[in-house]
Amino acid sequence: MSGVVEQDARLVVMANQIANNVPVGGEVPQQVADHIGKFWTGAMRADLKRIAEHSSDQLRQEVVAAVALLA
């Protein structure tokens, strides 16, 4: 696996894990977007958007929805 592919795979795992763990009760996509916006770099967010665009099947639906909310 190349380094870039490996990095993408890690971002997918991280994003899905966030969606799976945010507190219950709130809107999951918004919480995921807020968390990623607060803790991820711009480059990581851009990579996630690219992944969501081309390989959205790897991402939970809430993450795909969250990507649309990212600045």
């Binding site: 380094g3 870039v4 490996e6 990095q7």
Partner: peptide
């Protein structure tokens, strides 16, 4: 905007 955490740095290093 935030910078990279240690694991992010290491992943990005492997990615060049």
């Amino acid at each position: 905007e935030p910078g990279m955490r240690i694991p992010n740095m290491l992943d990005a290093a492997v990615a060049g």
